[in-house]
């Protein structure tokens, strides 16, 4: 394992301290691993979080126009309720708090328990669950679809709505509208190495890729040979477009790198994605290309679409200023 770390047990703490040092607007809460805004304002608070290893998610989205607090768990493991409660307290200005949760069993349980405990302290808390990964069949019986890169759009939309002074119910409604209109699909070319484990979770062959792999290395839908950028765009978009009707609409596009894929390749992929969308009469309103929701040193990408209406366009365009996403 080659990594710039001191010790596997201290990676989360040290990454958050380093982040707070680089971004003086952020406050780091020791032990509880919470990053929050130094300056609070009177508005609905937005809190997200989850396992570490997905940087810049989630702490990189704390700032004006997005999150008020982000709660970090250990690598790929949900934060515990005591940490989440601290995040809720940091975000609460008396107007209530919205939790943006990615759909994994562990995250759901820990965030819901924190919600129950915060409500005992008379903080009003609502939650939304992001489940954008079309590689997994949706299900009301099993855990169902995972939350992946589309979560960043939900942070943007909910954050903008809260910043505009909307109440908790309105902020929650905007977040749910975004979630309903977001779909993502990813692929991986190589697995990632957890600092505490020291070797990759599995190994893909020299010319092998896996379509639909999760952001923790969960198995995908198909292992196949390396494709061109055009073929990759086609495979990923076909799944997204088959799952939700985007025809004739305007969309926001997120081309996300998983941590070890050069921006060069992400831009090449974006070129192909845009070609296909234009062909299908889907208009690209705004595009984001970069490493927004990573998976340690995994190489690969995901493509996310969000169908837009006037409200979502306005919220997407609203200014935000965070370490990992700025709209000016």
């Amino acid at each position: 394992m080659k990594k710039i770390i001191n010790h596997p047990n201290s990676v989360v703490t040290e990454l958050l301290i380093g982040m707070a040092k680089a971004h003086p607007d952020l406050k780091y809460t020791d032990e509880l691993e919470v990053i929050s805004r130094k300056v609070k304002s009177k508005k609905v608070g937005i809190v997200s979080g989850g396992g570490s290893g997905h940087e810049p998610a989630h702490a990189g989205y704390v700032g004006k126009g997005m999150l008020d607090a982000a709660v970090a768990g250990n690598v790929f493991s949900s934060p515990s309720p005591d940490r989440i409660i601290k995040g809720i307290e940091e975000a609460n200005s008396g107007e209530g708090v919205l939790l943006v949760i990615k759909n994994y069993s562990g995250d759901i349980m820990n965030f819901e328990m924190a919600k129950d405990m915060a409500e005992m302290d008379d903080i009003r808390v609502e939650s939304v669950v992001v489940k954008d990964d079309v590689a997994v069949p949706d299900s009301t019986y099993s855990t169902g679809r995972r939350g992946i890169a589309g979560t960043v759009f939900v942070h943007k939309i909910a954050g903008a709505k809260a910043e505009a002074g909307a109440n908790l119910d309105q902020v929650k409604a905007a977040a749910e509208k975004a979630i309903a209109n977001i779909r993502s699909m990813g692929m991986a070319m190589n697995s990632c190495t957890l600092p505490a484990v020291g070797k990759p979770g599995f190994v893909l062959g020299e010319n092998e890729i896996e379509i639909g792999m999760g952001i923790h290395g969960e198995p995908g839908v198909e292992r196949t040979s390396v494709k061109t950028a055009a073929e990759t765009a086609d495979i990923l978009l076909s799944k997204v477009l088959a799952d939700y009707d985007y025809s004739g609409s305007e969309v926001a596009v997120l081309i996300n790198g998983l941590g070890a894929t050069p921006l060069m390749e992400l831009y090449i992929l974006n070129n192909e994605v845009e070609k296909i969308l234009t062909e299908k009469n889907i208009k690209v309103y705004k595009t984001f290309v970069g490493n927004y929701m990573t998976s340690l040193d995994m190489s690969g990408c995901s493509v996310t679409l969000m169908k837009l209406d006037e409200e979502l366009k306005e919220l997407l365009d609203a200014p935000c200023d965070t370490p990992a996403l700025k709209v000016l």
Partner: peptide
């Protein structure tokens, strides 16, 4: 319960804590 919840973390921690 409190120790298990905060130290174990993830799914097992919150379940043993509960």
């Amino acid at each position: 319960g409190m120790i298990m919840m905060s130290v174990i973390g993830g799914s097992s921690g919150v379940l043993y804590g509960s």
